[in-house]
């Protein structure tokens, strides 16, 4: 079997599930990594170190910014000339788009957000959550190549062999962009919830500390957001100490406490970290569907009757403004940091 593995990156920052896809491809046979962008030598080198048998690189100024059309056309051309059995991607907003379009070009289909993939004869059987993970389906694609995006952290990550070199082949960029990138409205650091092994999340409760006195001159809404920012600072401290990411409920996002990229749940991100600490989150079903597959869930909430406690392994009834910093201190001591 021959697999093309699309290495998804944002300005050189690789989506780690790309390496998981590479490891999966190797278990089926030949794994050819595919890297698009401009000035992407480092990414190509990393792909070789993670075990790619060959790396196809389209390094072109027209690919400097991601555009669904150019990325899809370049990929479709590669698929036509290399005839892979399978094309694998990590599941991201970008890969859903470009795989979707390439599937139209190649008269095939895409199996998205897989948690399992097995070879079966000369094709594949995939397992994926549907209905917000309430049911799993096994699904197949009868055309070739089979295209599949894998969920982060669902497959093992291969070891990296520093210095390992591989065959790197330049390929051509194809297609024409149908839009122009005018810029970024805010410089935010990447929020990588899908790949995080630890997530500490805050909800509406993060703004609920009447003792904190906001700076003079703020109206009620500004004071609420200011309080929430103090709360999220505590959550960020704990997340950073544990090497994790910061999550949020929709109430926190709607309240303007934090950006949408952090939202966990039905209309946000579905995550499955090893450890999920929910602070000041009530546990509405739309939040639960986004995080209930975490291995260990800890809930910190003032209200002993909050539904989040029905989902948690450990619970603390208390004020997050007291418990979260105390937990950070205790963890620091015990982890020797």
């Amino acid at each position: 079997m021959k697999t093309l593995v699309y290495i998804d990156h944002f300005k050189g920052d690789v989506q780690p599930a790309s390496w998981e896809a590479l490891g999966l491809a190797k278990s089926f046979g030949t794994a050819v990594a595919v890297v698009f962008g401009s000035g992407v030598d480092e990414v190509a080198k990393a792909a070789a170190e993670f075990g790619a048998d060959e790396v196809l690189v389209a390094d072109d100024s027209s690919l400097a910014d991601y555009h669904a059309e150019t990325y899809a056309s370049t990929l479709s051309a590669l698929a036509s000339s290399h005839s892979p059995d399978l094309i694998l991607f990590p599941t991201t907003a970008r890969t859903r788009e470009m795989s979707a379009m390439a599937a139209v070009d190649l008269n095939t289909g895409v199996l998205t957000d897989l948690i399992q993939l097995e070879a079966s004869g000369d094709s594949f059987i995939a397992t994926r959550p549907i209905y917000e993970g309430k049911v799993l389906e096994k699904t197949t694609c009868s055309a070739k190549p089979v295209m599949a995006t894998i969920r982060g952290r669902a497959f093992p990550k291969p070891d990296r062999e520093a210095g390992k070199s591989g065959k790197i082949t330049k390929v051509e960029a194809k297609g024409e962009a149908k839009s122009t990138v005018e810029g970024y409205s805010a410089s935010e650091s990447a929020v990588n919830l899908g790949d995080a092994s630890v997530i500490v999340s805050g909800g509406r409760g993060v703004s609920n500390n009447p003792v904190l006195t906001p700076p003079a001159g703020m109206d009620e809404k500004q004071a609420e957001v200011w309080r929430a920012q103090q709360g999220f600072a505590l959550i960020t401290d704990l997340a950073q100490l544990l090497g994790g990411a910061v999550g949020a409920s929709r109430a926190a996002v709607d309240g303007g406490y934090i950006t949408y990229a952090h939202q966990v749940g039905q209309t946000g991100k579905v995550v499955a970290p090893d450890l999920y600490i929910a602070c000041g989150i009530s546990g509405a079903i739309q939040h639960l569907v986004g995080m209930r597959n975490a291995k260990v869930i800890v809930a910190i909430n003032k209200d002993a009757d909050a539904p989040i406690f029905k989902q948690a392994r450990y619970g603390v009834v208390g004020d997050l403004f007291a418990i979260v910093p105390a937990l950070t201190e205790a963890m620091k001591k015990k982890l020797g940091k």
């Binding site: 008269n107 095939t108 289909g109 895409v110 199996l111 059987i125 397992t127 959550p129 993970g133 309430k134 049911v135 799993l136 389906e137 096994k138 699904t139 197949t140 694609c141 009868s142 055309a143 209930r292 869930i297 406690f309 029905k310 989902q311 948690a312 392994r313 450990y314 619970g315 603390v316 009834v317 208390g318 004020d319 007291a322 418990i323 910093p325 105390a326």
Partner: peptide
């Protein structure tokens, strides 16, 4: 070309909660 071959109910996770209590945070 994409078809479903099987449906599965995911195993129910039994989580017994343990409440952590104490005198001080």
């Amino acid at each position: 070309v994409v078809t479903r071959s099987e449906l599965i109910n995911p195993p129910v996770q039994e989580t017994a909660i343990e409440m952590i209590t104490g005198e001080t945070p």
